[in-house]
Amino acid sequence: MPSPPSSSSFDADMRRQTDLGAIWSAIKWGVLAALFLLWGFWLVFFPSPRAEPGSQLFGVAFLVGGAIGLAFIVRIALQRLTPGENALDKELSVFGDPNLVAAEIDVAFAGKRFRPRRVEIAGDWLCYVGKGLTVVRRLDRLIWAYKLRLSHRLNGIIPYRVSYDLIVWDRDGCATAIPGSSTAIDKTLQNLHVATPWLLFGYSETLKESWNSDRADLILYIDNQRQRHITTNVASE
């Protein structure tokens, strides 16, 4: 049984950041619920003389909704902070015993400092913690990666913001979207290309249709590419 991660290990830093993310998320939603509570309290106990009839009923609804929401947020936050139940443990448990996987990640990232909101790639692992999102992926399970540019529009018409995400599809058919700046995602894709040259990079209609309609063949193709790469590397060594 491996010893629990030391306080300065890569895994411990990720764990700390995951907990901070859970707390920050709880605070953010908790403030919203508290505002509802406050508004409801105001409507019920200090009704304005010019208030429309029935506004007190709204106040009661806000009070009840806010209280239920606050209780739910606290419960979720406590659950997320419980060892074994938090987001990082859930991500690690996909690959086996979380302690063993954490130790493996520590070995892969030995000597590297964890940086929140950066996609870190080393050994067989891709890790990201930030913006309430925790991602741990084995590189040999990835199939396809590309940068997605999203144009946000007001009422679906007026563009007001552009955001970028790194999209990574794995062999289980699941996508992970990691937000970031355009340059950061480009750099991550470059690093990913160095670590896993067999992966599919970039988006095209051909890749999209192949993924949707011929997924098993696409995964087999990537497996063959990976095997060929490993064989070439072993031969050259």
Partner: peptide, 15 residues
Amino acid sequence: ISNGPIGPQKGADVP
């Protein structure tokens, strides 16, 4: 025929 790759998504809010 879909307008993007099909599959469950995790992480950032992507349509």
